[in-house]
Amino acid sequence: MRVRFWGVRGSIPVPGPQTNRYGGNTSCVEVRPKGATPIIIDAGTGIRKLGKLFMQSEFGDGRGVAHLLISHTHWDHIQGLPFFSPLYQQGNELHLFARQRNDMHLRAIFESQTEDPYFPVPMSTLKADIRFHELVEGQRFDIGRAKITCTRLNHPWIAMAYRIDVDGAAMVYASDTAPFTDILLEQEFIREPPILGEPIDPAKLAKLEVMRSGLVHLCRGADLLIYDTQFTQKEYCSRPHWGHSTPDDAIAIAREAGVATLALYHHAQWRSDDQQDEILHDYRAKTIGEPFELIAAHEGMELILGDDD
């Protein structure tokens, strides 16, 4: 399979010369199993240019089928969807997968993104056929030959990590998540961050440990792990309740799960290309001798995993 990054930025798109190399678009990754229809993970602003490219193939004639896995519905993971050109072409099919919510059907959540007065084109009037598939944690399903598994992450309102196994290789997408040590992030709003290092409620800690081992299990032996590493250690300490990790957290998971390549991802909106280079450089030095390769995802980066044509 081929994995291509279309948006690697967290929280909000950041145009400007300081993000030219890594890219300023929000989360979007394309996974292309050999000879099969595309699987897209997240629909941040990066999906706009992916959609333009799709329109030059069967999607332009209304014969395209794509599957979209959504980690969670925070703006930076869905804000590109109304600008995904294949949705405006009759005949195209989009299968959208995301975690089931208690209060609202997935379709209603996505429709409210494009309702008046926020967007001029309501989702219900789009010409393509959009089908919603609600997921529960741990669910397994197939997209063609690809086997998909998922587990939940530690993020406000809860995000999902996905694993795709196909063509004799496996990739995992784990964004957005906080580490599993200091705070349990679920439905409720947390105003004040905890004091780091203070003991936390044992019931919550137990839940975090289950979550973490679920993620390590999901990542086991993967060829590629894409991980939310928005924060430096210092940034994390003042914002542990925002629901994002540091490279140290990602490295620990990669090591335990025995992955081959770890990709830093969901770069902070305030991070310049030079600063991101520095982070990669520092952590490469720290991980010399580790059994995995460390990379930092940038827009346009393409990786080939397992069999490919």
């Binding site: 798109p13 950041v14 145009p15 890219g23 300023g24 602003t45 600008f83």
Partner: peptide, 15 residues
């Protein structure tokens, strides 16, 4: 309509 990051919008800006 939507932010447009990239070298091609550096001068006028993509915000």
């Amino acid at each position: 309509s939507i932010p447009a990051p990239g070298p091609e919008t550096n001068r006028y800006g993509g915000n």
